[in-house]
Structure formats: structure tokens, C-alpha cells
Design a protein around this nucleic acid. Sequence first.
DNA 1: GCCGAATTCGTACGAACGTACAGAAACTGA
DNA 2: TCAGTTTCTGTACGTTCGTACGAATTCGGC
Lengths: 215, 215
Amino acid sequence: MVTRASLSQERSRLRRDELLAAAIELFAEGGSRAITHRAVAARAGLPSATTTYYFESIDELIREALGSHIDQWTRDLEALSAVDLDIEVSLDDASQFISHIFSARGPEVAALELAIFLAAARAPELRHAAAHAIRAFEGLTLRMLNRVGVHDADMLAASIVTLIAGTAVRRQSGLHTEHEEARLLTAAIRNLVAAHALGADGVDRTLAKLSEKAK
Amino acid sequence: MVTRASLSQERSRLRRDELLAAAIELFAEGGSRAITHRAVAARAGLPSATTTYYFESIDELIREALGSHIDQWTRDLEALSAVDLDIEVSLDDASQFISHIFSARGPEVAALELAIFLAAARAPELRHAAAHAIRAFEGLTLRMLNRVGVHDADMLAASIVTLIAGTAVRRQSGLHTEHEEARLLTAAIRNLVAAHALGADGVDRTLAKLSEKAK
DNA sequence: GCCGAATTCGTACGAACGTACAGAAACTGA
DNA sequence: TCAGTTTCTGTACGTTCGTACGAATTCGGC
């Protein structure tokens, strides 16, 4: 196989990347079934034999395409994380921002991202990349929360990431409008933050009171 | 195509179902790429020509397999919903139960379920089945909550389903142990319930207090 | 301007694919 | 028991697939 790094000429590296992008496009439209040597080359506007020069096998091509996409996703999140948050960020701003990372882009994008993530998590070679992506996501969320003095901030960040991922799944059903999903997500995040503001004791007390009332 | 209903002989209906089950098995192991006429027939221990007799095309076979699996999943949830909850169910019991619907089964099962759901949501013919599955899931969750006198119970149920779906996604990364994921999910559910017990006003007040403190 | 290395791409081959089909076998109702 | 229907399956056809390969082209160092 000709790895990206081993390519000495700029044009080659570009072509290789174009093939990967074409593979992702096909994957988005018709799943892994749509990814074939000829289809990828045709989509990229390149001769059919191109793919066999750059990739050892079709599985390798698919892996590389999914991997590079998920890596890019991770890098984007990390770049967002690195931005200095000098301005004052209110809780609502943060919650809005977080909920828009996913929901601003359409459900089709969310579906693609989810499908890639799932496929990656299944492949041993990409498992690490998938874990890294989640970690970056949690890191960004945690950073958005670091001005909010709340108990168990890591746990809260993890829960929020879980909510966002779950929303991405739910959206696919088309059961609710995009607007409703966004509202639901924002409300759920607010609720979680409020609970963490109460602290474990506060939550325990509230639930105890609730149990009393139920009797 | 020979639909299941149009088959007059019991053995035929069984064979058709076996083919569908074999297709799901292959899908679980190698994705939709692994589903071919010959592979499905071989897995079911039947002659290769069997699949072409029962299904009009390979896409039809795949659709039918995904659809029947998601329908079964929905029926299981509805059956659980229909069980009379005569016994007293504490909040902890309910939260434990809900979180175990997903987490009791391994991550591989969750991955399969997610992949099937995503693939179904993409196919117009299965979109309805996917939506129905989510609705059934929310219905069951809502039913588990109906003894808990809480504000916006539908919203809470939707949020909990979102959390469970999100957990199913997160688990795939293998970033945390299964035990940690379960603990995180249970805690998040408890937090959400507590927030709903406070009501919208209570949450608003708590968050306002939090904002004050941050300054 | 030349040479070895890297890149490009038309072509080809065997394997696996989806699908069709005809004859065999099994079943059903009279 | 027998005709008609349904079910079964071996076989085969054309297509598409993954992959290999060699000749042609382009490139970087000298």
C-alpha cells in the first residue's frame, strides 16, 4: 500500500485524499455497499485503476476513509476546545452552543457521523480513533462548563455528550420536528446542570421528597 | 416476491424466517456487505436458490431482514409495556430497570440494534418502523414513570430514552467500563427525575442561583 | 538533458455476484 | 388416487467485483 506520508508528490497526496472523500460521499448515500473501486474512482473523476495504486485492498480503502473522517471530526472538536473563551459565556450560551454542535447540521449529517462512528468502533484498527473522538467531545463539553461551578463536572460533561449522541439517534426516526428535538435537548441539558448544581445530597433529598409524595 | 403471508405451508414460512435470521447474523458480523444470496442461504443451511424464491431482490431481502428485526424489537417493548405493574415500583427500581433494558445486553447487541435502526431510518420503506420503535420505547419509559408524580412526564420519558440511546452509542467507544457506563446512566436518569421533580420554576431558580455564584 | 524512481492508467482475468428458469418434488383438495 | 398448485433446487447466464500488471508518462536529483 502507498501510505499518504510515503507519497512524495503533492498531486498524489491530493488525489489520495480525493479518493477518500469520494468514498465517504458514497458511504453517505448508500452505505458501505456502495463503496467499490470503480465507483470511488468514478466519483472522484479519476481512472478506475487509481484506487488499487493507493490502497492495498477495498477494505483498507474503507477503513482509511472512515478513519480519516473520524480523525478530522476529532481535530475539529479539539480546535474548538483550544479557542480561548475570553468572553463571558453564560450558561444558556454554552448550552445553546453545545446543543448546536449536533443539531445545527441536518439529521443526514448526524446519520453519517453515527454510521461512521459505529463502523469505526467495530473495526479493531479504528477503535482507538472512535474512543479519541468521544474523548475530544467530552473535553470540549467539559471546557464549556468550566466556568460553571458545579459538582462532578466530568460526569455532567459525560452525561451531556450522552444526551447529544442520543438526540442524534432519535432524530433519525423523524418522530419529532428538528425544532422540538433541539428544544428537548436544551431543556434536558438545563435539567442536568440544575441537578448537578443541587449536588448529590440535594438530588437525594429531592427524590426522597418525591417518593414520600407518591405514597 | 413471495410474502410471508402468501405462503400456505408452515415449513415455507419457517424457512423464510430462517433466511431473515441468517441475514441478520451476517449483518451483525460484517455489515450489509456480508449479506449476499449465497452467504445467507449457506448460513441458514439451505440451497443457494432458496433466497431468490422468497425475495424479489437482495435489497428486498436486506430491507425485510432489518424491518422484521426492528418490528420484533418494537413488539418486545410493547409486550413489556402491557405487563401490569401491580407491585409497588420504587423510583430506583424503575431507573434500574430502564437502564438495564440496554445495558444488560452487551455492547455488541447495542451496536447491532443501533446499526439496524440507522439503516432502517435511512430507507423510506422502514422509516415508519424505526419511528414506531422509538415511540414504543418512549411509551414503555413513560409507563414506568406513571407512578412518579412529576412535571412534564412525556418530556422526561423522551429525555431518558435519549440518554439510553446515547449510552448505547458511547459504549461502542470502549472508553469506559460497562460498569461505569451503567453507573453514569443511572445517575443521569436520577438527576433528570430530580430536576423534573423541581419543576420548571425550581430549575430556573437553581440555575439563576448558579449564575449568581459564578460572578 | 538524462536516469532511476514515482506515478498514471488502459486492459485483463478469475471469482463472486444477482438473477432467471426449468424440471423435480411435495403438498392440497376433490 | 389424481390433477393442479405450491415449493424446492441444480444449473447457468451476464454483470460487476477485486486485483494484478505492464507500458506510458511524469517527476526529482544530478
